[in-house]
């Protein structure tokens, strides 16, 4: 479980219970935080992903699994709780960050929840994700909600600042109350096969995070091959990543199902080897409710139901929520919905 809010320091290895849960809400078993392990270069180099095979699986999976009616509504509500509502624009100000935080507290119109009999469910966003300068404002806006603030620190989105600068940014974000750090890796290390350097980079950030959980952004759109993506995933997990994440949202290609398949299979392999559960966050390009359902099915099929909880799965998205809300309204009313009827994030 990712910490519900900044500053409530708990033991690193045992998570607190899901705050605000009802009898109906599945409370996941407490999560042991990934302690990391020594880099196993032989294991890294043995990793191979066949792109055509991965694409076939990714193409047929959405055709094999679909949910309808109240199942769809429930799955979409779950998706809402897994969203890292994100704003990462150059023109962000405290005002639009506060608006996003308000939406995170109440992501679905209460009348819709009531109509679905879901008013008692803890429907709130998984986190709010901002640049470092807005961490404090977001923490302030979310105080008492149990919603963590994630900061994209480490010279997002390129990551190409001096290590000392990146670590200083992490330290500052944690100090401002960020409960989660979304770091970006140096993509060139992957392209050059410098696995030890990549391991060291991630491990250094992880050490600087302290209690804050670390999501490692691989920048998959710039890693060239699924095999590179899988190897980078593995190295990041060995270096102590709590989550592995696809993209900054700034690359030309962001989260895709084949990329996700390559990454979640590494999460599975890491679990089989070390017993540790690492989270997954696809980010960028997920804009529709249908896509969100496909990702949930992917997690359920490849990793199991345990990964359908916010401590192990997040969507990095900004436009997704509105489409999900529209689909929920359609479920409630039977009429196709309009975006302007939903409070904008």
């Amino acid at each position: 479980m990712i910490r519900p809010s900044a500053g409530t320091g708990t033991a690193a290895r045992v998570a607190p219970a899901d705050a605000g849960g009802t009898a109906l809400v599945h409370v996941p078993a407490p999560l042991v935080r990934n302690p990391g392990e020594p880099l196993d270069l032989a294991a890294v180099r043995a990793i191979r992903v066949n792109r055509s095979a991965a694409e076939r699986r990714a193409a047929t999976l959405p055709a094999r699994r679909t949910v309808k009616k109240q199942w769809q509504a429930a799955w979409l509500l779950k998706a809402v709780t897994l969203m890292d509502l994100t704003t990462l624009q150059g023109d962000d100000t405290p005002a639009n960050v506060r608006r996003l935080c308000a939406k995170a507290r109440q992501p679905v119109r209460p009348d819709l929840l009531e109509a679905m009999g879901a008013s008692a469910l803890p429907i709130r966003a998984g986190a709010v994700c901002v640049y470092h300068p807005f961490v404090a404002a977001a923490v302030d806006a979310l105080r008492g909600s149990g919603i963590p603030v994630a900061a994209v620190s480490t010279a997002f989105p390129s990551g190409l600042a001096p290590m000392a600068t990146r670590l200083a940014e992490v330290r500052a974000s944690v100090a401002d109350g960020a409960a989660e750090i979304d770091m970006v890796i140096t993509r060139g290390l992957v392209l050059r096969g410098e696995w030890q350097a990549l391991y060291d980079e991630v491990a250094a950030v992880r050490a600087m995070c302290g209690e804050a959980h670390l999501k490692v952004i691989l920048g998959t759109g710039e890693l060239a091959t699924l095999t590179n993506i899988a190897r980078a995933s593995w190295v990041a997990m060995q270096a102590g990543a709590d989550f592995i994440k696809t993209s900054t949202g700034k690359e030309s290609v962001n989260a895709t199902l084949p990329v996700s398949l390559a990454m979640v299979r590494m999460i599975r392999a890491y679990r089989e080897r070390s017993g540790v559960l690492v989270g997954y966050k696809p980010a960028g390009g997920i804009r529709t409710a249908k896509q969100a359902l496909d990702y949930l099915a992917l997690m359920k099929e490849e990793l199991g139901d345990r990964w359908l909880a916010p401590d192990l799965f997040r969507f990095g998205a900004s436009a997704l929520l509105t489409d999900v809300e529209r689909q929920l309204e359609h479920f409630v009313t039977g009429r196709y919905a309009a975006a302007h009827r939903m409070p904008m994030p």
Binding site: L24, V67, W71, A74
Partner: peptide, 17 residues
């Protein structure tokens, strides 16, 4: 009937005829 709240907890698949 299976409710939305129940499914939210189980995350089961339903019929899709």
């Amino acid at each position: 009937m299976t409710t939305v709240a129940e499914i939210f907890s189980t995350m089961a698949y339903g019929p899709a005829p």
